[in-house]
Amino acid sequence: MIYEESDMKFDFPDDNTTIKFDDNVEFYRKLFNALPGSKAVDFITLDKEFAAFIEIKNCMGNEGNNRWRIFPDNQKKETSHTATDLEGRDSLDIEISEKTAMTLAALTGIVSFGESRPSLRELRNIADNVILRYLKDGKKKKYVILLLEGDFGSHTRSKKMIMSNLQRSIKQKLKWLNCQVSVVDSDTYPSKIFRIVS
């Protein structure tokens, strides 16, 4: 099935269960957003063997305003010269780690309602699966994936070095979770999980 996010189109296998989590009105908008600072990843997709939490950052054409975000731990936040307001924004490693944590908190919240909220039924199936099958089973893989589009490479650092650096930092921040962290772009993304259509 094709989904759109950040001016890009993604094709997830029809056999898998995929949701565009932060688009959900009944739970995400009406309930979860009551929590100040609430945020979540763009996609959750479930395969027989793995669950993946996917965040899309398409910075193509707007690299200048986002360059400070590729340096872990807000290293460049104070010294960046961008046209955008940085209030409440963080470097990508912090943002993705927090989004992952909050996504799991949101899924736990959904499970907590049990059968009491029929409007959450579709989400509850996914939340039950994530919490009770994928998270509970240490052998099932849990992926946290940041797709980072944009020409961030420089003369002294290739984009892969930048992605490795972010990946290490996110992994460090998510060491409380049994998961694989992966930072990729349109050249290196895992096609077994999704395909970029355009």
Binding site: M161, M163, Q180, P190
Partner: peptide, 8 residues
């Protein structure tokens, strides 16, 4: 980086 993604 490629080897690490291959492992993941």
């Amino acid at each position: 980086y490629d080897r690490e993604q291959g492992f993941i």
